[in-house]
């Protein structure tokens, strides 16, 4: 499925189950998403991650609602499954789609101005370097006997200085590769929203509506 459509669908459903209170539908969404993820050959580590880490907020919410909530244990279970539904729905997108394809389709099919699509993409591609840079900033501060934590203004200050420099470099590099802002572009890799994408989107969305309408428990 087209990554843009997939993201839109996932977000719409996630938004909807934030307002509705159906335990059964939450469980159905979790099971279907999980089955879909299993067909996509994702690593065991990623699979373990999406099952294990949400356990903390889910159990936390469950217990507090159970002890102090006025709506009883059924509502506590709804919140518990809601967290997992968010994560598994999200994983159907994040574990299977590339951010490059997403920005390409956002530009070509969703009419996002190209400077946003490529600018943000360029920044996201630097993510591994950013992780490294934060380590460098922390280490060089340590060499001066200064420990930087997430509450130290200096850590952010130095990060922003790097951002300013890198953004300038990246923008210039893109310009020198022929990128012109606010100008119609041709594409090497064309991504279209096909009839199949539309059908899948509408059918899946409709099914969720029907389920939410009929299953209230």
């Amino acid at each position: 499925m087209n990554p843009g459509m997939k993201l839109l669908l996932v977000m719409l459903i996630a938004l909807e189950i934030s307002f509705t209170q159906s335990l059964t539908v939450n469980v159905i969404l979790i099971v279907v998403s999980f089955a879909y993820i299993l067909t996509q050959h994702v690593s065991m580590k990623a699979l373990f991650g999406i099952i294990f880490w949400p356990l903390f907020p889910a159990v936390g919410l469950f217990v507090s609602q159970w002890l102090y909530g006025s709506a009883g244990i059924h509502f506590a279970w709804i919140l518990f499954t809601r967290i997992y539904a968010y994560v598994f729905l999200g994983a159907t997108f994040t574990l299977t789609s590339s951010i490059t394809d997403l920005s390409l389709t956002l530009e070509q099919d969703f009419h996002l101005p190209s400077k946003f699509a490529y600018g943000v993409l360029a920044a996201f591609n630097l993510m591994p370097k950013i992780v490294e840079e934060i380590q460098i900033i922390k280490t060089s501060a340590l060499m001066r006997g200064e420990a930087l934590h997430f509450w130290s203004p200096k850590l952010y200050f130095k990060s922003i200085l790097s951002s300013i420099q890198w953004s300038q470099n990246l923008a210039e590099a893109m310009t020198s590769h022929g990128f012109v802002e606010d100008y119609e572009r041709t594409h090497y890799k064309v991504i279209r929203i096909t009839a199949l994408d539309w059908t899948l989107f509408i059918v899946l969305f409709a099914i969720v509506q029907v389920l939410l309408f009929f299953i209230r428990y």
Binding site: E133, I134, S159, E181
Partner: peptide, 23 residues
């Protein structure tokens, strides 16, 4: 909203995002 400023916003967001992720 120049290309440079868009990249700058994205970079600052990623930097802060990764710092919080570490926390």
């Amino acid at each position: 909203w120049t290309l440079r400023n868009i990249i700058l916003i994205a970079l600052i967001a990623i930097f802060t995002g990764i710092i919080f992720w570490g926390a």
